[in-house]
Amino acid sequence: MDRHSQISVRTNRYSVPVRLIGRRVRAVLHASELIVYDGREEVARHERLKAKGQARLLLDHYLEALVRKPGALPGATALEQARAAGRFTPIHDAWWAAACKAHGDSEGTKALVAVLLLSRHMTHEHLVAGLAAALCAGALTADAVALEARKAAEAEQPEPPPSQQPPAPSQQATVTSLTARRLAQLPPDTRPLPSVAVYDQLLRRRSSGQSPSSKGETR
């Protein structure tokens, strides 16, 4: 693989990730595609070029290098091919222009590269939606785009079927006291309630100065 992170296969050139520059890789050519392996790991997959002397470059393969050299992005062949393939949309360009205006060309381009790295973990559609929302809000950081992209992804998640939805409040299980459950299983108590009338009489006698032992005695 050459210093431009490309391999040559039958007069055509194909990109591979920049982390593999200087390594020997294996290319498997099929009828409609080319697959590149580093050992047993697949590291690149391209649509096969039919004509001679052409190049197929993926912008994603160069992102780590563009973080260090953001000035190489404008006018890059990989960027033009990404635009032609619809992977780099007018929303990308608009957000990029706004970021460069706010942070300067170098820092604005680094912010765009950080956004492009998000595509390794998010779908293209959600990322574009995140860029559009962030642009409308004037949020010109990769973190803001990631947040808006996650919101777009969550908004598209279908509701769970009724069998998996939580029960309504009236249907939710209630907590039962073990003591109350045991008492409910006991037979009914038919004994009369206790009376304290005798003790009331005793209290009245003490309050009047008459002791129980003086009952019936005279002075």
Rank of each mutant, 00 (worst) to 15 (best):
K50E: 11
T179I: 05
T89S: 14
V28M: 06
A84L: 08
L116T: 04
A84V: 02
H92V: 09
A97E: 07
L178A: 15
Q54G: 08
A31M: 04
Q6N: 15
A55S: 15
A31Q: 12
A133N: 06
R181Y: 11
V196G: 06
S15E: 04
Q54W: 03
H103F: 06
A144K: 03
R10D: 07
G86C: 06
R23L: 06
E64A: 14
T123P: 00
V113I: 12
E148R: 15
Y199M: 07
D2W: 14
T218V: 13
G22V: 10
A173T: 07
A99Q: 00
E125M: 00
A97P: 01
K52A: 15
N12E: 01
R13W: 13
K215N: 11
K69S: 14
L131D: 04
G216M: 09
R10K: 08
A97R: 11
T176P: 04
D60R: 11
D93K: 15
P17Y: 03
A51S: 11
V175M: 14
P158W: 00
R45P: 12
R23T: 14
A168E: 07
A144Q: 05
R26Y: 09
A144P: 00
H46K: 12
A134P: 01
A149Y: 03
L63F: 08
R19S: 14
A134E: 01
S32M: 07
Q185N: 10
P192R: 01
L117P: 00
P74S: 02
L79D: 09
L193F: 05
E33K: 08
Q164T: 00
R83A: 10
L20H: 14
P169E: 12
Q157S: 02
S8C: 13
Q6P: 08
P161N: 02
L29N: 06
Q171R: 15
P167A: 15
L135T: 07
Q172K: 11
E156R: 10
Y14H: 10
H4T: 12
E42Q: 15
G86I: 04
